[in-house]
């Protein structure tokens, strides 16, 4: 049979002497070879103090596979520096990076929760929209409360539209008053009226009313 067996699986040469030392990994993280940068990023998961250098690299690296590895390690570390750094990246001009960071933050519910209130009132409406995007699949009991506050207070129609779409999925009868108030705040905006009515219908149906 033309099947072959080798006793030992293959290992790339650079991986034989792959360092686990923080300083050496920090040097490898800026290597010109993206494979080495990626490997360093993943190995830095063993170092609690590595978030700052990872965030620095995340902002600069153009290679998607390296950025993905950095984000995986930042999720794994999940410390304050990691979360603060990720929030900084939400303000990046790089749309792909912002989307990658939103996905990463969804996986850090307990770390993101304490800063969510401030993210949702950020001066930058784009950051507020990204914060609502994070809520889309953030496993946290406060999600509905946060969304209610957004549609009660946020002056920006796009932020409210993002929030009301999500409330249509996760909202309960507690959101009813906030939804009705939102409709009255934007009476001339057909999409808001449509989305609010849809959300109310879903909530109403859920309660059997």
């Amino acid at each position: 049979m033309p099947f072959i067996k080798k006793n030992n699986p293959t290992m790339d040469s650079y991986e034989h002497d792959c360092s686990r030392d923080l300083n050496e990994l920090a040097v490898q993280l800026v290597d010109e070879n993206p494979v080495i940068r990626r490997s360093a990023a993943l190995n830095l998961a063993e170092h609690q103090g590595a978030s700052e250098i990872l965030i620095d690299r995340l902002k600069q690296d153009r290679d998607i596979s390296v950025r993905d590895a950095i984000l995986t390690t930042l999720i794994s570390l999940g410390d304050t520096f990691a979360v603060i750094g990720l929030v900084e990246c939400l303000r990046s001009e790089d749309a792909a990076l912002r989307n990658e960071v939103v996905d990463a933050m969804k996986q850090l519910p307990e770390k993101v929760a304490p800063i969510m209130t401030s993210l949702l009132v950020d001066v930058n409406s784009d950051v507020r929209i990204f914060a609502v995007n994070i809520l889309e699949s953030l496993r946290h009991l406060q999600v509905e409360t946060w969304l209610d506050r957004v549609i009660e207070d946020d002056p920006h129609i796009n932020v409210c539209a993002t929030a009301v779409d999500l409330l249509g999925e996760v909202g309960t009868s507690t959101s009813r008053a906030a939804l009705i108030h939102l409709r009255s705040r934007f009476p001339d905006e057909p999409y808001i009226c449509f989305a609010v009515n849809l959300a109310l219908k879903r909530i109403g149906e859920d309660k059997g009313t």
Binding site: K5, P9, D12, E15, L42, A45
Partner: peptide
């Protein structure tokens, strides 16, 4: 027996990055 001896079976933890270095290409 031909099939049995054709396949390499290995014990490995997918979450162990050190073990995983040997699984390439």
């Amino acid at each position: 027996e031909d099939l049995r001896s054709s396949i390499e079976f290995t014990c490995v933890n997918l979450m162990d990055s050190v073990e995983m270095r040997a699984y390439r290409k």
